[in-house]
Design a protein around this nucleic acid. Structure first.
Lengths: 335, 335
DNA sequence: CTGTTAGCGCGTTCAG
DNA sequence: CTGAACGCGCTAACAG
């Protein structure tokens, strides 16, 4: 590996001059500039970034925390973030927290140890009290999940409550009378309390049910996360005395599991059971029946969150404190 | 931000001693060790990793190249890699190449500039001639995609040819007579030549067809990548004079697109058209009919690739040069 | 067992 | 316009 010294030697100039050429300083003799560039080419020189970082400060790297990258929802968000980051020559470091609070803190230390310029949370398990101290080491942005107490931290998300309200209202309007609710719940998550996101979603459901004066049985509440959870939930639901005729879920995976199991048991969807998903993943239209679901604008969320982060890193004025993107209900065949 | 100097000052020792404590050196007075740890706590000290890297060499970071992380196949592989990496306190830097050859080279420079200890290719567009020079800066591992000429580079993949041979034989045995083939082809990819992986797959199809003395019309060859491509391919196929009665595809997405469009046009699957996927993504069993597909052991591939990488980084003896994992055909309802 | 010393590769004054 | 000199934070070799 050649260093700046080697280049300087070969070009017959001092290291400072080489440095100036690299950083496009003005006031460098054209001839020497050419000589330096030539020497760099010949040696296949490239600057040691650790040294650059030690001297300067920025790493041009952003950490992105997700619970599991296999989840297409997170995949899409990360993809969008990466797009914006790449445009600005920033890199992403992928932090798969697996819903583990300690892992999350561990990754947060990347900020403390100056290995990244900022941290974006797409998943979130720790509370603000725990995270707060780290915020002094660099910017933090919430994308998707959020914490109410975290003042001053940009939040890019959808209006969870409104989305669930819309979905519930849709079912009520359609004439469904026993509407069950399935909370989004990541079993990997180590804490038992509901996230702000899950709380808000439930509030939307509750508000609609109350406005319509619908009874809403405690036994109609489920929780889950995966296709498997969906299958399990159908079984639970099928064992109930008063069976629901519709269910709103927290993810397309859960919905897919419920539909698969329901069909397997001879139920017709949406006649015997209406199912609403959440996310609008690419597979939603591949299911039979096609899934009615809430569209999450993953592209915009990811892009916007990264834009906010880059603005924060460059200490530009913040674009917005909280951004609620629209999440329209897409009515298809499952309701 | 406090440095090692601050800690030393506060603990009343030299910087070397602080360093020794951090690195768990033996031969440090217990009392001083305690004093140092206390000082570190009080100052909230954490070492500057750029400085550590500058001094030592390892970054404990591995770059993983994928064409697009939204693809659940890559998501699963990366997830598995991350799992192993995390166990050994290594981190992943996610490189979304978008099938762009220049992007790929750009990320390869991370190796050259010592920002990562190694690079794993899950996607691959450049040729060996281009990549080879970088291999002197650190270990490279191929996972999934590969290059035949790249001697000495570990390859973790499945036996592509065998997999396609099995799938084709299955259709032949079932009595299908006009078996079309859809190559995996990433439209993002900038080069027009087929990858070694795609080549090998096609060879498997061809071998089975020849052994069974089946005619195999040139017009029955398609290429694609996404659900949209699948839909397009069905339309093309539907316009053909002699229509195929079966098709083998390079991904579950393509297969899903073909099935969706076929059903929309009143075709019955598998009666009018049998469809075979590739990957066995979670959605394969959610489709109706359930998809016959080739299972890719993403978990093992990712884990094994990372294990190879870590072994290479630590200069341990290589486990194996090339590893072909089994990729069984899962026969379900679409054939 | 411990402090002193000497760089790792680079950017940035500060005098020319 | 250019080079000399200094230090970023840390580790390792060398004397004690």
């Amino acid at each position: 590996m050649s260093t700046i010294k080697d280049v300087a030697l070969r070009a017959g100039v001092s290291r400072s001059t080489v440095s100036r050429v690299m950083n496009n300083h003005p006031y460098v003799d054209e001839e020497k500039r050419r000589a330096v560039k030539e020497a760099m080419m010949e040696l296949g020189y490239s600057p040691n970034s650790s040294a650059q970082r030690l001297r300067g400060t920025e790493t041009r790297t952003i950490a992105v925390l997700v619970s599991r990258i296999v989840n297409p929802f997170f995949g899409a968000i990360v993809d969008a973030m990466d797009e914006v980051a790449a445009e600005h020559s920033y890199r992403l470091i992928l932090c798969n927290t697996r819903g583990n609070a300690n892992q999350e803190l561990h990754f947060l230390q990347l900020l403390q140890t100056k290995q990244v310029d900022g941290v974006i949370f797409a998943s979130l398990v720790n509370d603000w009290e725990t995270i707060r101290p780290f915020s002094e080491y660099g910017p933090i942005v919430f994308c998707n999940e959020y914490l109410r107490e975290a003042e001053g931290v940009p939040v890019i998300t959808i209006n969870q409550k409104q989305a669930m309200y819309d979905a519930t209202m849709h079912l009520i309007t359609k004439g469904y009378e026993r509407i069950a609710y399935c909370n989004i719940y990541d079993p990997l998550k180590q804490q038992s309390t509901l996230s702000a996101l899950a709380e808000d979603r439930f509030l939307g459901y509750k508000k609609a049910m109350e406005e319509a004066k619908m009874s809403c049985d405690e036994s109609w509440r489920f929780a889950g996360h995966s296709v498997e959870d969906g299958k399990r939930i159908f079984k639970e639901l099928n064992n109930l005395a008063g069976k629901p005729d519709a269910i709103i879920t927290g993810s397309d995976e859960i919905a897919a599991g419920i539909i698969a199991e329901a069909k397997g048991n001879g139920w017709r969807v949406p006649d015997d059971l209406a199912v609403v998903g959440f996310d609008n993943q690419p597979t939603a239209v591949l299911l039979d029946p096609k899934l009615t679901t809430i569209h999450q604008p993953t592209l915009e969320m990811g892009r916007e969150a990264m834009a906010q982060m880059l603005a924060a890193v460059k200490k530009e004025p913040k674009l917005a404190q909280v951004l609620y993107l629209a999440a329209p209900l897409l009515i298809r065949q499952s309701t």
